[in-house]
Design a protein around this nucleic acid. Structure first.
Lengths: 111, 111
DNA sequence: TTGATACTTAGTCATGTGACGAAGTATTGA
DNA sequence: TCAATACTTCGTCACATGACTAAGTATCAA
């Protein structure tokens, strides 16, 4: 598996979990600490931390520790990579449908 | 978890596996049977079938059996839903950056 | 300096996932 | 009819995932 494939796998895996998507949504409103992130969820801190680490590994989120507080923020690179993959595939399929339609119209005219 | 959340979870989970992404890529070139799909991969038929079933459940792919052959094709709905989520979040974050930049510029002028 | 705060690590557990081979079913072609 | 084809189901297995509690460590405030 190429690095690009690996990156996509990590991005989509990270986004496959509803808690992690909620974290991403929250971070789109602005940076937050681990404690702030954990508040809206009914999960233990170590569990939340693990989610943040997965998001960080996938490149969706970056973090920085200052004193005893770790601040998390969104990174758009991985979001864009996922979006690019989806759009490319949508475009591929739609091109195919267009070509098919064109082909059918050509056939009709020939009658 | 709402139905929409569930749908997103299934879509992103489905896309998290490289074999399944390869199946989606292949099907963007046009419909294919289970046998045709399995050829490029070094995996057993039951494994491939399971992947196709996961893709079908997520709504990314639809299948139809005629005689003894099952034909698989892309469905764009789930692809679009995933793309929408990503684009919405990219937009959210970029709006925030714009507002921040505007704020900084306003502060500068006030000096 | 010392107690509170904010994570962090370690260890455990139930469940889910992706893989396989073997054996089954339903169609098709000769 | 009957062998070949194209899945499909079944049972199993190793490993990954997401959750927890308990017990750390590092920083800050009084």
């Amino acid at each position: 598996m190429t690095k690009y494939q690996n990156q996509l796998t990590e991005t989509f895996s990270a986004l496959a979990d509803p808690t992690r998507r909620a974290i991403v949504s929250r971070l789109c409103e602005g940076p937050a600490s681990i404690g702030e992130l954990s508040e809206p969820f009914k999960i233990a801190l170590p569990t939340l931390l693990k989610h943040v680490q997965i998001l960080e590994k996938s490149g969706l989120v970056s973090t920085q520790k200052t004193g005893r507080v770790r601040t998390c923020r969104i990174e758009t690179g991985a979001l864009k990579a996922g979006d690019d993959w989806l759009r490319q595939h949508l475009a591929l399929w739609e091109d195919r449908l267009d070509r098919m339609e064109h082909h059918i119209n050509t056939m009709k005219k020939e009658h």
